[in-house]
């Protein structure tokens, strides 16, 4: 049961961070389908930092470095979407999909090359191990083994709510996703705002990526991507009605179902059902389909999302 709580908190953190990222992008008017790829790039940045930074630097430096590099990597990945979709009016869905594929392919090629060359050809996997560095990130809270990222997530949640609803920047950002022409007419630079929205989503997506690959495992195979988690986060965002606090509740629900897949053997009641592990693997995806089926009908998505801003149509 303790394990269930632990994994729920970890997976909730991942989904919450990434969904908040999606929330910022969509409120500015850009659909970020590429979150999956952005997560992977962030994860790659963080994993490389953990691999190459000596453990002797101590926990605080390690934590800060990993957070910083992951966030920056995600930011860089998100710029691919921002430039194409905002400056060149490209189709946001195609660009996002391309980023997902590009991230997986680039990470695989890069990590494989690194492993192949450093091992002299005996190791051609796309795996990075970070066992010792991961221990620095963990924190014991009574019987729970969590990591510092959970705290980062809570901060991100509070900050997101505050920025979106209590600051001039956030309200302007949301105006650009609802009615960009009106926003432009009162002197808001729609292009800049959309860049800001996408770049924030890149930072949060990158952080989500590193949290995901350090949740309970000591190494990651980059050719597997992040197993649809970026898309699950988008489902969480839709279920959470594009509102940070509701997104947090939605993330918790999905987090529980995802965590069940990791720990069901330890729970007597579930183990006695003797369901195959496949059922638990499928569970988060099935639940999200069902939830979306019931909640999408009345969804209030930002009105102008997905439509490139055309100044001449004002």
């Amino acid at each position: 049961m303790i394990l269930l709580v632990q994994y729920t908190l970890l997976f909730t953190s991942v989904l919450l961070l990434v969904a908040l990222g999606g929330c910022f992008a969509e409120h500015s008017g850009v659909i970020n389908i590429g979150l999956e790829g952005i997560m992977l790039v962030g994860a790659l940045g963080g994993a490389l930092t953990m691999k190459f930074l000596p453990v002797s630097v101590g926990a605080p430096v390690m934590i800060l470095a990993v957070i910083l590099v992951s966030a920056l990597s995600g930011l860089v990945a998100s710029l691919f979407l921002a430039v194409a979709a905002i400056s060149f009016n490209a189709d946001q869905t195609i660009t996002g999909t391309a980023i997902n594929m590009l991230a997986t392919a680039a990470a695989t090629v890069g990590v494989k090359a690194m492993n192949t060359i450093s091992s002299g050809g005996s190791d051609v996997s796309s795996e990075i191990a970070y066992t010792s560095a991961r221990e620095l990130l963990t924190v014991k809270l009574g019987p729970l083994t969590l990591n510092w990222f959970v705290l980062v997530t809570i901060l991100a949640l509070i900050l997101s709510y505050f920025v979106l609803y209590k600051t001039r920047f956030g309200l302007r950002l949301m105006a650009c996703g609802e009615h960009p022409q009106a926003a432009d007419s009162v002197g808001i630079n729609v292009y800049k705002m959309r860049y800001a929205g996408v770049m924030i989503s890149g930072v949060l997506g990158g952080l989500g990526g590193i949290v995901y690959i350090t949740a309970g495992i000591n190494s990651w195979k980059f050719e597997n991507g992040v197993a649809g988690f970026g898309f699950l986060a988008l489902a969480v965002m839709i279920f959470g009605a594009w509102h940070p606090l509701k997104i947090a509740a939605a993330a918790l629900l999905f987090g529980v179902f995802r965590a069940l897949g990791n720990v069901y053997t330890g729970i007597d009641f579930l183990a006695s059902l003797k369901l195959s592990s496949t059922i638990y693997n499928m569970l988060p995806y099935i639940i999200s389909l069902i939830v979306l089926a019931f909640t999408s009908k009345n969804s209030r998505a930002p009105k102008a999302e997905g439509i490139p801003y055309d100044k001449s149509q004002r």
């Binding site: 649809g228 988008l234 389909l289 999408s296």
Partner: peptide, 16 residues
């Protein structure tokens, strides 16, 4: 019938 984005439902069905 439920206004679910085809991209999201598609991805979920991919994994299922």
């Amino acid at each position: 019938y439920c206004n679910v984005n085809v991209v999201i439902s598609g991805i979920m069905l991919n994994w299922i």
